[in-house]
Each structure stands twice: as C-alpha cells, then as structure tokens.
C-alpha cells in the first residue's frame, strides 16, 4: 500500500537501548525498566520534572516521543498539528495490576487516584500532548502485535482529511519488565516511503 506520505524519522527503545533513525543515542546495562528509563531520562538531558510522576508506560512513551520530536527542532512559538496514534498489546495492564493489588485485600485497601489515572493506555498520549502543546487528534489501538497496515491506513486518513499535518505513530508496549517502543513520524517530507512494508522493515531494525 503506497501513499503520498513519508516517514521522516523513527525511534526505538528496546533491549536497554534508545536509538534514533537507527543510531544508538543511549544504552546501559540496567536490568529493570524503571532504572533504565531513569538513566535514559538523565543521559538524554530531558529536564521535565513531571516525568517522575508518570507510570512506566507513560515514561516509555514520553522518552521515545521526546527523542524523536526534539530532533525535529520544532519552533516553540508555532503551534504544531501533529496527531498521535499509538498502539500496543498490554494496554495499561502494568499499572492496572498495581491498582488491583491495592484493592484485592479488604484489610489492606488503599486505592490511589495517582495510580488509577494511569489505568488507561491513552494517558501517555496526554502526557506527550501537554509537553509539546499538541491540541491534536489522538487515538490508542490495541492489537496482539504491530499492525502496520492499520496504522498506515489511519495515518493516511488523518493526513488526507487534513486533520493533521504530521502523525506521530507506532507501538508502545510495556508488560511487567518487558518493554518496547517504536515510534515514527509520518509527514509530507522525508526519504522513506510511508508503506506497510517500510513500517515493518523499520520496526525490525
């Protein structure tokens, strides 16, 4: 499936590595995700205190989006119309389990709004929208694995209808200590064709 659009840039976070357009920008040997992502935050000079209040899924999405969008040198004075279309397998189950633990035992019952608010996968889209002032279209889809065809159709739709100028799209999955982020920016400009095949090729890079 070909379109008139292109993939301008892409980012991966997996296997203790953060990379941008195939080049490693951070790696370390932390075995646990919270340690790894905190080290990435510091090394990548993120400077955003709200990061520390986020749940693990939002931290993963936020760092991936930040690495990618920082590289775009966006003009802070100009409002960008970048839609966000994310997908994953585990939804917000990582944080859902925390909330469930807090209510499972009647003798130790302590549900917290600070946890409960993250029991929705699209909260990470909200976090990125706040940081980058994106008043744009957003949607979160659940598939059992990356569904390049559907993501491509939906991004094309938003661009065709002029609902967005660019689409930040991809896969953000976190389940217990397994994590994987793959984001790419779909735009009119860029060197890589926006096709199902290219999305899969980049995903597997």
């Amino acid at each position: 499936m070909a379109s008139n659009y292109h993939i301008k840039s892409y980012c991966h976070i997996k296997n203790q590595t953060v990379s941008l357009n195939g080049q490693i920008v951070f790696e370390d040997d932390s075995k646990l995700f919270p340690d790894f992502i905190k080290n990435a935050y510091r090394a990548l000079d993120t400077k955003y205190a709200k990061f520390f209040k986020m749940d693990n899924l939002s931290k993963l999405a936020f760092i991936a989006a930040d690495v990618l969008l920082k590289n775009e040198n966006l003009n802070p004075e100009k409002e960008e119309n970048i839609a966000i279309v994310f997908s994953n397998k585990a939804a917000s189950l990582d944080t859902d389990r925390l909330h469930q633990e807090a209510i499972q035992n009647k003798n130790n019952y302590f549900p917290s709004p600070a946890v409960f608010v993250y029991t929705l996968p699209n909260i990470c889209i909200g976090e990125i929208s706040i940081k980058y002032k994106l008043f744009s279209e957003n949607s979160f889809f659940i598939f059992d694995s990356l569904n390049a065809e559907h993501l491509a159709s939906y991004s094309n739709s938003l661009l065709d209808m002029k609902k967005a100028d660019q689409v930040l799209c991809g896969w953000i999955d976190l389940d217990e200590n397994q994590y994987e982020a793959f984001l790419y920016l779909v735009s009119k400009n860029g060197k890589i064709a926006h096709s199902k095949e290219q999305i899969i090729t980049l995903y597997n890079t």
Partner: peptide, 22 residues
C-alpha cells in the same frame, strides 16, 4: 480495539468512517 478513555465509544464511530473512506 479502541481504548481511548471515555471518548472511545464516539471516537470508534469516527474511526469506522475513516477506515471506510480509506
């Protein structure tokens, strides 16, 4: 599957339309 908090139900209609137009 669309899981986008409390707008999911109406957003799903918009998404269905968009897939049909594509």
């Amino acid at each position: 599957i669309v899981s986008n908090a409390c707008v999911s139900g109406i957003l799903a209609v918009a998404i269905a339309k968009r897939y049909i137009l594509q």
